[in-house]
């Protein structure tokens, strides 16, 4: 009897190995990219049926941490790794971590001013002033002058920001630090920062909820969130001096504008990018992969997945309200993928 069971066990083990060209890739990180990577994981199965991809949206910080220690095969982040983090990862993994942009997102200002409907225009100075706490009334000349047709009230502005560490906050702070030297020196750029004014809402729904319920408030949310929930949002003046409403195409334009000066490691901020129709508060979301992977089958699959994601996979972006990578960036990434030592 026991022999029979052993035999059966050995048999099933053999059969598992036989089917066993199954490769599992695990990834973790950015919650912003989670819907996209999940969709990719499902669609990639039609390209290579032996691959199972698991991506966990644990936050960009967690993604950087896990890919740096080799716990996962790839990471996802909304803010690029800094030099110290890259050096730290290299000492642990004995290989470089590379950044590959996979899609784009944007952050938009949302507000609730009783008696004001329609889109407000925000200049760089107005946004920086409001979020630094220097502009405190809605009828401040900095805001009023950009909106001559709107009658703004003399009410106090309440700033609402994200309470948790978030890629959206990273984008917002990155933009403000580019247009305001004071923000750059006093506050800085990060996914969680020390806010000079305002209250924190938990998640996009928390920020949107607080803005909706509090008169004379202003906050920021991801473009995806505003579009899907039919929340009205304001126009932001770009570096060319035009007021632009965020849309998938104006966000892609930001990436195209930045593509000419794209560094080889793709760690580039595209906030306040050049271009007449460019929306200025946008960012890539990156996939993080090690330059060399010891497991050859895994390496081949990872490379195939990455190549597929930046080409065919881009068709999944717009239905999920991500902006597509512009052609210039894809071409540059394809060249970079060839340098992977897989």
């Amino acid at each position: 009897m026991i022999r029979k069971i052993l035999l059966a066990a050995a048999f099933s083990a053999v059969s598992l190995v036989a089917v066993g060209q199954q490769v599992t890739l695990t990834g973790a990180g950015s919650t912003f990219a989670y819907p996209l990577y999940s969709k990719w994981a499902a669609n990639f199965k039609q390209v290579n049926g032996n691959v199972q991809i698991n991506y966990q949206g644990i936050g960009s910080g967690g993604g950087i941490r896990q890919v740096s220690t080799g716990t996962v095969d790839f990471g996802g982040t909304d803010g690029p790794m800094n030099d110290a983090q890259l050096a730290d990862a290299k000492s642990k993994l004995h290989t470089d971590i590379l950044h590959f942009p996979t899609a784009l997102g944007a952050a938009v200002p949302i507000y609730n001013i009783p008696g004001v409907s329609g889109d407000l225009n925000f200049t760089q100075d107005a946004l920086a002033g409001i979020f630094l706490g220097k502009i405190t009334k809605w009828n401040d000349p900095y805001i009023q002058s950009a909106n001559p047709k709107v009658k703004l009230p003399a009410s106090n502005i309440l700033v609402v920001h994200r309470s948790e560490g978030s890629g959206t906050t990273y984008m917002w702070a990155d933009y403000l630090s580019k247009v305001s030297p004071e923000w750059k020196s006093k506050i800085g750029v990060g996914s969680a920062i020390s806010w000079p004014v305002g209250i924190g809402g938990k998640g996009s729904e928390g920020v949107a909820g607080l803005v909706k319920q509090t008169a004379n408030s202003i906050g920021y949310v991801e473009l995806v969130y505003a579009v899907e929930n039919h929340i009205n949002y304001g126009n932001v003046r770009n570096s060319a001096g035009n007021f632009v409403k965020a849309s998938l195409s104006s966000v892609s334009a930001a990436a195209a504008g930045a593509a000419k000066n794209m560094p080889d490691d793709f760690r580039v901020s595209i906030t306040d990018a050049p271009g007449a129709q460019t929306y200025p508060i946008a960012s890539f979301t990156w996939m993080l992969v090690p330059r060399s992977v010891p497991d050859k089958t895994k390496a081949a699959v990872l490379k195939q997945f990455l190549q597929w994601g930046i080409t065919t996979g881009q068709n999944d972006c717009e239905p999920l309200t991500y902006a597509k990578l512009p052609r210039e960036v894809v071409a540059k990434e394809e060249a970079a993928i060839k340098t992977l030592q897989y």
């Binding site: 919650t31 644990i58 936050g59 960009s60 910080g61 967690g62 950087i64 941490r65 983090q85 309470s163 948790e164 560490g165 978030s166 996914s191 969680a192 924190g200 938990k202």
Partner: peptide, 11 residues
């Protein structure tokens, strides 16, 4: 609240 808010993004 602060632990829950900031733990995931603390790098």
């Amino acid at each position: 609240a602060v632990i829950a808010n900031e733990f995931a993004e603390a790098s």
